[in-house]
Design a protein around this nucleic acid. Structure first.
Lengths: 191, 191
DNA sequence: ATCATTTCTTAATCTAGGTTAAGGAGTTCT
DNA sequence: AGAACTCCTTAACCTAGATTAAGAAATGAT
C-alpha cells in the first residue's frame, strides 16, 4: 500500500474518495543517487515524500561550505519550506543521497487539496508542528551542547541512518568540520 | 479592538459568532516585568499572545547558562511548543521582559476551537509554518555566519526591539557570551 | 539620597574547534 | 588495471569566542 496514505492515517482518517483525491494530486518518481532535485536560487515547486532511499537538504555558505539542514528517509517529507511556502527563490539544495522513490506534491496541488480535503489541513499542521519542535530542539542543542554531546544525541536519534551516511555529512549536520569530526571520533574510541 | 482577532483576520475571515467563540475561549492577563509564566519541568498549559509589553523564552543548560529561544512583542505568540503540544514537562522558561498584557489560550480550548471553528486550523497552520521557516533560517545562520554577521542580521530584523532589550539577552540570542558581545560591539564602533 | 544588585565593559588568558597540508583508502570512469 | 576522484585520517598550527576577574555604570529598593 501507499506509504503516504498510511502516514496520513496516523493523524486523520480519510474516506476512500478522499484517498483517491490525494493519489490523483501526487506523482511518484524514481531518482538515482546524486540527483539534485532543487538548487539554490530556484523555486521549490514540490515537496517530496520519501518512500525509498534517502534525500538530504543543505545550503552552501559564502565560503563554499555545505551545511546539512535535514535528512529524509522513508516516511519523511523534505522541501525548502521557505521557498515552497512563499514560492520565491530559496537557498537550499535538495539532493538524493541513496537511490530513491519519492512522492511529489506540488504547491498548487497542496493548496487544492487543502480546499477539497479540509482534513489535510490538520494533517499538515501536525506535521509542521512536529517539524518545528524538532528544529527548535536542534537550535537549543547547538547553543547548549559541545560537538561531542551533539554527536551522541545524533547517533541515538538516527540509529539506523548513521551507518548509511558519509561522515562528512554527519559532521556537517552537527556543525563541525570533517577534520574535527574525525579527531573527535578518534578521541571517543580511546575512552 | 482585539489585536488577536485582527491578526486572525490577516489569514482567515471569521463570522461574528466565530469571533465570539475565540473570545470566549481566551482570557486576558496583565503581568509585571520579571514575572515567570513557565518554568523548566512544568507543563505548558497555555500559549501566550502578547498584546502589550515583551516576553521571552529561554532554556538553562547544564552549566547554568541561559539561552534565549525567542522574544515576543505585541502581535506575537510565545509558548514552549514541545510541552504545549505534547502536554509533557518542557525545558523552557517563559518570562516577562517588560510589563505586559497577554491573551491566554489553553491547550484544551485550542483543541476545542479547532473543532468548533475549523478555519482556525488553517490560521494556526500558517502561523506555525512561518515560525518553522524563521527557526530554520536561524539554524542556518548559526551554522553559516560569524557572531558579527548574526548580530547584524538581528539588528536589521528586530530594529525596534533591539533598543528595549538588555545586551546580555541579545548576546544570548545570537549565541555568544555577554563579554564577547561587548568586545565585538567595541570593535564594530571603531569601523 | 544611599546601599545593593544587576548590567556592561575591559583585559589577560585559555580552549574548542577551524585551517592547512599531506598521505592513504576506497570508488568510479575509461 | 590505472587515472582521477572523493572520502577519511592525522598532525601542526591558528583563531573566534569562552572564561575569569575586576572595576564602572546603571537600576532598583529602602
Amino acid at each position: 500500500m501507499n506509504l503516504l496514505l498510511e502516514n496520513i492515517a496516523k493523524h486523520v482518517s480519510l474516506t476512500s474518495e478522499e484517498k483517491q483525491r490525494v493519489l490523483a494530486f501526487t506523482e511518484i518518481q524514481h531518482y538515482k543517487a546524486k540527483t539534485i532535485l532543487l538548487k539554490e536560487g530556484e523555486i521549490c515547486t514540490h515537496s517530496f515524500f520519501v518512500t525509498k532511499g534517502i534525500l538530504r537538504s543543505y545550503n552552501i555558505d559564502e565560503n563554499g561550505v555545505e551545511h546539512v539542514v535535514s535528512f529524509a528517509c522513508p516516511g519523511w517529507w523534505i522541501a525548502d519550506m521557505y521557498s515552497f511556502l512563499s514560492q520565491r527563490p530559496g537557498q537550499l539544495y535538495i539532493e538524493v543521497n541513496e537511490e530513491a522513490e519519492v512522492i511529489l506534491l506540488s504547491k498548487e496541488n497542496q493548496d487544492k487539496l487543502y480546499n477539497e480535503v479540509p482534513k489535510l489541513e490538520r494533517f499538515f499542521r501536525i506535521l509542521i508542528e512536529n517539524s518545528l519542535v524538532a528544529n527548535q530542539q536542534r537550535l537549543i542543542d547547538n547553543l547548549s551542547f559541545t560537538a561531542e554531546a551533539r554527536y551522541d544525541k545524533f547517533t541515538k536519534k538516527y540509529k539506523e541512518l548513521v551507518h548509511c551516511l558519509p561522515q562528512k555529512q554527519i559532521a556537517s549536520y552537527i556543525g563541525v568540520t570533517p577534520e574535527f569530526f574525525s579527531k573527535m571520533k578518534a578521541r571517543l574510541l580511546k575512552k
